[in-house]
C-alpha cells in the first residue's frame, strides 16, 4: 500500500487543496487503521506477508473502483459492475477451455466488458434511462448471461488438464514477482497509473470533469456529452472484466457468482477516496486508498477475530460515514463561499 504514496509524488495527481485534504484525510485514516490494528494484533497485522495479502485481496475491488470512479465523475453509477466482473471472468475462462491462447482469451474477456459497458452507456445516453435503473436491470441481465455461459457451474481451467496453461493463468491471478509482490497488484498499480493520467492529463479527462460538473454548460461549450459518458461506461465495463479475469485466474476457475455485490465495494472505495456521488469530482489515487481502507478494515477485523456479521455492520457504518462526510464537506464549502469583491466597481 505504500506504493500508492510514491505514486502521489510522481504523478502529482492532486488538483487543489480541498482534494488534497480529502486524500490526506483518507490516507491518514489508512495509516491510523494500520497502526491501530498493528498495536491490537501485537504486530501481526504489520507483518510484510499480511500486508501483501491485503494488497492481493484489494486488487479486484480497486480495479473495479477505477472504472466506477469514471462513471461516478459523470454523475452516474454502474450497479452492473459486479455482474460484468463475473461475465468477463467466465467468458475468458470459457475461451481458454475452448482452446484459445491466454492472451486472446483475455482480450475476449475484456471485450465482453467493453460491450457490456457500451450497452449500459447506450441505455443511459441514448434512451435516457437513469443510470441507477439502467444498470440495475443490466446487473440481472449480465449475471444471467454469466450463468448461461457457465451453465450454472464454475468454468474450471484445471479441468482442461493442461499443466502449463493452468500454471500461467494462476500466476496471473496470484503469482508473485520481485520476491513477494503479487502480480495482480502490479497490474492494478499500472492500471491506476494509466487511468490516473487519463483523468488528469488528457482532453478526455477534462471533458469528463466538465460533463460531471455541469452537463449543460459542457454541452453548450461544444463537448460531446454522449461520447464522453459512453466512454466512461465502457472504461467501467473494461475494468470490471479485468478484475473478473484476475479473480478467475487466482482460482484457475471462473465462478458464475463471482463479483456479486462487488460494485458496492467499488463505489465505497471511490467515495471514501473522495469521488463525489453527484459528479464532477474524484480521482484514481483516492480510489486506491479507499480500496485499501476497506481491505485493511476487513483484514484487521479478521485478525482480531471479530465476528463476520459484526464486521459487516462496522464496514457498512464506515461507508455511510464516508458519504456523510463527503456531502457535509461539500455543503459547508458551498455555504462558506463569499464572492471575491469586484474591485472594478469602485471606480
Amino acid at each position: 500500500m505504500m506504493s500508492s504514496k510514491v505514486e502521489t509524488a510522481k504523478n502529482g495527481l492532486f488538483k487543489n487543496r480541498s482534494e488534497f485534504l480529502q486524500k490526506f484525510l483518507a490516507f491518514g485514516v489508512l495509516i491510523f487503521l494500520c497502526i491501530f490494528f498493528g498495536v491490537l494484533t501485537g504486530g501481526n497485522f504489520l507483518q510484510i506477508d499480511n500486508l501483501l495479502t491485503i494488497a492481493l485481496q484489494v486488487t479486484p475491488y480497486a480495479i473495479l473502483g477505477f472504472g466506477l470512479t469514471f462513471v461516478l465523475i459523470t454523475g452516474g453509477t454502474d450497479l452492473s459492475a459486479g455482474s460484468v466482473l463475473g461475465f468477463g471472468g467466465i467468458v475468458c475462462a470459457k475461451a481458454i477451455t475452448l482452446g484459445f491462447s491466454i492472451p486472446v482469451a483475455i482480450l475476449i474477456g475484456i471485450l465482453t466488458g467493453v460491450l457490456a459497458g457500451l450497452i449500459n452507456g447506450l441505455f443511459i445516453t441514448k434512451l435516457n434511462v437513469t443510470p441507477f435503473i439502467a444498470t440495475l436491470g443490466t446487473q440481472y441481465a449480465f449475471r444471467g448471461l454469466t450463468q448461461l455461459v457457465g451453465q450454472g457451474k464454475p468454468v474450471s481451467i484445471r479441468a482442461l488438464g493442461d499443466e502449463q496453461i493452468t500454471k500461467v493463468f494462476q500466476f496471473m491471478g496470484g503469482g508473485t514477482v520481485f520476491g513477494k509482490i503479487p502480480f495482480p497488484t502490479i497490474i492494478m498499480l499500472i492500471t491506476a497509473t494509466i487511468l490516473g493520467i487519463v483523468l488528469s492529463k488528457t482532453g478526455y479527462g477534462r471533458r469528463l470533469f466538465a460533463v460531471g460538473s455541469n452537463e449543460e454548460a459542457a454541452r453548450l461549450s461544444g463537448i460531446n456529452v454522449v461520447k464522453t459518458k459512453l466512454t466512461a461506461y465502457i472504461i467501467c465495463g473494461a475494468t470490471s472484466a479485468m478484475a473478473g479475469i484476475l479473480l478467475a485466474a487466482r482460482l484457475a476457475s471462473a465462478q458464475s457468482n463471482a463479483g456479486s455485490g462487488y460494485e458496492l465495494e467499488g463505489i465505497a472505495a471511490a467515495v471514501i477516496g473522495g469521488t463525489s456521488v453527484i459528479g464532477g469530482e474524484g480521482g484514481i489515487l483516492g480510489t486506491v486508498i479507499g480500496a485499501f481502507v476497506m481491505g485493511v478494515l476487513r483484514n484487521g477485523l479478521n485478525l482480531l477475530k471479530v465476528d463476520a456479521f459484526v464486521q459487516m455492520v462496522i464496514i457498512g457504518t464506515i461507508i455511510v460515514l464516508g458519504v456523510w462526510y463527503d456531502t457535509s464537506r461539500r455543503k459547508k464549502q458551498a455555504e462558506s463561499i463569499k464572492p471575491v469583491k469586484n474591485c472594478e466597481s469602485s471606480k
Partner: peptide, 11 residues
C-alpha cells in the same frame, strides 16, 4: 448552463 462552478477558472 454557462459555467462549471466547481471547476477552476483555467478549466
Amino acid at each position: 448552463d454557462g459555467l462549471a462552478l466547481n471547476m477552476t477558472v483555467e478549466r
